[in-house]
């Protein structure tokens, strides 16, 4: 019974029914709901089969086209950097940069103080006969930052020998122990001496004024350090900060 129905439906779809058969078929479709449902499902199945097998190559071609476009699209997408995806580590990096900028700005724009500059290289004086003992002691005291002791030794040395270099280190030691008046006097002496220590005297004289919080006087001394001096860059930097 069902088999006959399928053969009939197939012939109907193939447009292969006589006029009488067609009339009966259409009547049955209208009146027999179960038959109608079978017919509709049969037709759907038939359409699916046609799509799957008759148009197989067309579907494969579309699949290939989609594949190709998709691959190109996603390759291109991969190459582009993500616009604004949130990454927690970026906050870390940003914070680090902020801190570094902060430190730089602090150093660059904060009011400079004496303790930012009072770093001295280890001194080593050449032995000069009878002075050698005092000189060694002065050297040791200065290098170990015993400035009061160093000042005493340099004072003795300067009294025995009007050496500009000794005067400089005596002055530095005096500034370290807050004896500014004598120190500034010594710097002035050195400036008048026209020796190789003039630039150093200007620099350390300025630091003395800085420690006394006399920025104007410090600036005035710094501004006299000429371009050819080793202290020039340092002096300019400090000068800019003070002004």
């Amino acid at each position: 019974m069902k088999e006959q129905e399928y053969i009939l439906i197939e012939n109907y779809l193939a447009d292969d029914l006589t006029a009488k058969e067609l009339g009966d078929f259409e009547d049955k479709l209208r009146t027999d709901l179960e038959f109608r449902e079978t017919f509709e499902t049969y037709q759907q199945v038939s359409d699916q089969l046609k799509h799957e097998f008759t148009h197989y190559s067309e579907k494969e071609a579309v699949k290939k086209s989609i594949d190709k476009v998709a691959n190109t699209y996603f390759e291109k997408k991969k190459e582009q950097p993500k616009k604004s995806s949130f990454k927690p580590w970026r906050i870390g990096v940003a914070a680090m940069i902020l801190i570094l900028v902060g430190i730089y700005a602090y150093q660059e724009f904060s009011t400079p103080v004496y303790s930012d500059y009072n770093q001295y290289p280890t001194v080593s004086f050449q032995s000069r006969g009878e002075e050698s003992e005092s000189l060694r002691e002065a050297e040791e005291a200065f290098n170990s930052h015993q400035f009061a002791e160093a000042a005493t030794h340099f004072e003795v040395l300067v009294k025995g020998n009007d050496n500009v270099e000794y005067k400089l280190y005596w002055a530095i030691s005096l500034v370290e122990t807050d004896q500014f008046e004598k120190a500034d006097q010594l710097y002035l002496d050195i400036l008048k001496s026209e020796s190789v220590f003039v630039h150093e005297a200007l620099w350390f004289g300025a630091l003395s004024k800085l420690k006394q919080e006399d920025n104007k006087a410090a600036s005035q001394l710094l501004s006299q350090i000429p371009e050819e001096s080793d202290r020039y860059k340092e002096a300019q930097k400090l000068y800019k900060k003070l002004n």
């Binding site: 399928y6 197939e10 199945v45």
Partner: peptide, 8 residues
């Protein structure tokens, strides 16, 4: 037709 019917 019978095969399509079977599938149906």
């Amino acid at each position: 037709s019978l095969c399509i019917g079977k599938l149906t």
